[in-house]
Simulated scan of single mutants.
Amino acid sequence: MKSTTIRMLRAYLIVASLGAVCIDACVVIAMLIFDVPERVFTSADFRIAMAASLLLLLLASRSLACAAFQAALASRHVMFDGVERADGRRGTGSVALRDDCPNRLLVLLHIRIHRQQLAMVAA
């Protein structure tokens, strides 16, 4: 497998893992504080609902990362091949990200999801 594919899959797994941790925390809180019986969380309906929730979380984080990337393009925190691209199109080469980008983590998530190479961190 290519390294860009591995990075993309790793980015998706990190987002899904964070979502699963939040779901687990909500389940524990529901069981301890609200006395919800355990059989509710072992049903097939609950498992389907949580799988759908994780899918929606992945889609939402992908769209949020895309919006952050577009904002970084507009504010010139991201450059393609050393040339600023204000039209919003993705370049074929590598991406340079400035250190002072306000949404740096989301922009990095977008770069990893779209299998782009991070060339350097521009000053």
Rank of each mutant, 00 (worst) to 15 (best):
G19C: 05
I6C: 11
R39E: 14
A16N: 07
D35P: 09
V36I: 07
T92V: 03
T42N: 11
L108W: 01
D81H: 07
I33H: 10
R10W: 14
A51D: 08
S3M: 06
I113D: 00
H77F: 10
L56V: 13
V28K: 07
S63W: 07
H77G: 02
I6H: 09
L57F: 13
V21C: 03
Q117H: 08
H77T: 01
L108K: 03
R10D: 15
A25Y: 12
C101M: 05
E84H: 12
A72M: 02
R115D: 14
M120D: 07
S17Q: 07
G19W: 03
L56P: 14
R39V: 14
C101D: 13
A71P: 07
Y12S: 09
F69E: 01
F41T: 00
A74S: 06
A86T: 13
L108S: 01
A11C: 15
R7F: 02
A123W: 10
S53H: 05
A30R: 00
Q70G: 01
T42V: 11
R10Q: 13
V28W: 09
R76G: 02
G93C: 11
L106F: 13
S3V: 09
F69N: 01
Q117Y: 11
M8T: 04
R39P: 06
A25R: 05
A123L: 11
A44E: 12
I113Y: 04
L64Q: 00
M31N: 08
R112N: 05
L18W: 04
M8I: 01
V121R: 02
D87F: 13
L18E: 04
D100A: 08
Q117P: 11
R98A: 06
A65T: 04
H110G: 04
L13H: 12
